[in-house]
């Protein structure tokens, strides 16, 4: 009796959130899904049934969407890897008990406090691709300190321009990744390291064989969080490089085709595909997390 009442109470407690998310997430996704199956072009809603036309056009007949997929893959790989490597590196460095550790921790975390739009505007200046007499930004800095080999065209580089956008993104999110790893490192009992030391392992070996394997769950969480940020990246690219096809990604295509071009059906289809890719990334993770918890 008591258990039942408790369960009901608990359910009632969460119910408002369930309803809110039901409407604001699933209801709205449902609406978007419906629009994606319509011929809606123009300002006024038009729910005329179009079947999967918007999807097949995007996937089989749209060179722009192919550019988007390519850019997303490049950006995601570089951004996620960059954050993980830099974040882990910083976490390990700060885990050595250096003086001023607290200062450095806050410093690496502060970019998180800033919006992508502000970050983007500043990095637009820093990554100015001009060379020669008009050289500026980081290129100018490289020129002055003699690192000429580093001077490059940043996001104006043909084909690989999108890779440059990963730099400000890494700048913004690697501190957060560092914090996640620090949390993981601090959770590792000292006895484990001591035991390894007693066995004659070097510090490097300890990290490779003891610590890194234990950080795997943190890496997984970080990959999910960073991965979904990178699939949704939008305002950062716009702020750094404006709207140009060479740096197009699905979120930008969705926005411009919907609001600049009034292709609401197509925009909704892009949104659904984006959601689907996020779901493919996230659902196995959620399933895995809950399964492992249940086993504990």
């Amino acid at each position: 009796m008591r258990i039942k009442r408790d369960a009901l109470l608990g359910f009632l407690m969460v119910l408002p959130s369930i309803i809110a998310i039901g409407i604001f997430v699933y209801g709205f996704i449902g609406w978007t899904g419906r629009v994606s199956l319509s011929n809606w072009v123009g300002l006024l809603p038009n729910y005329e049934w179009a079947g999967l036309k918007n999807y097949t056009n995007l996937l089989f007949n749209d060179p722009r969407f192919m550019v988007d997929i390519r850019n997303t893959v490049i950006f995601t790989v570089l951004f996620v890897l960059g954050c993980l490597i830099l974040g882990l590196f910083l976490a390990v460095l700060l885990d050595q008990g250096l003086r001023g550790e607290a200062f450095f921790r806050s410093l690496f975390l502060f970019p998180m406090a800033i919006s992508f739009i502000v970050t983007g505007v500043v990095w637009r200046w820093l990554m100015n691709p001009a060379q020669g007499s008009r050289i500026s930004g980081l290129n100018l800095l490289f020129d002055r300190i003699g690192l000429d080999s580093l001077i490059n065209s940043w996001h104006a580089t043909p084909t690989w321009g999108i890779a440059a956008i990963a730099i400000p993104a890494i700048w913004q999110m690697s501190g957060y990744t560092m914090a996640l790893y620090l949390g993981g490192l601090r959770a590792i009992p000292d006895d484990l390291r001591e035991a390894a030391r007693v066995d004659g392992a070097s510090e490097v070996e300890i990290y490779r064989h003891v610590i890194l394997p234990l950080l795997r769950p943190v890496t997984l969480s970080a990959m999910i969080i960073l991965g979904h940020i990178s699939l949704k990246v939008f305002d950062l690219i716009i702020a750094v490089a404006g709207k140009q096809l060479a740096l197009d990604v699905p979120a930008i295509y969705m926005w411009t085709t919907t609001f600049d071009g009034q292709f609401y059906g197509r925009g909704a289809a892009i949104a659904m595909l984006l959601l689907l890719s996020v779901a493919i990334l996230v659902i196995p993770y959620l399933y895995y997390t809950i399964r492992t918890e249940a086993e504990l």
Binding site: R64, Q244, L245, A246, D248, T256, G261
Partner: peptide
């Protein structure tokens, strides 16, 4: 109109690459 212009913009963007 906006729709046409945005299609031209896409074609142009691809052409620039």
């Amino acid at each position: 109109n906006d729709s046409w212009k945005s299609e031209i913009d896409t074609a142009l963007g691809l052409f620039l690459t």
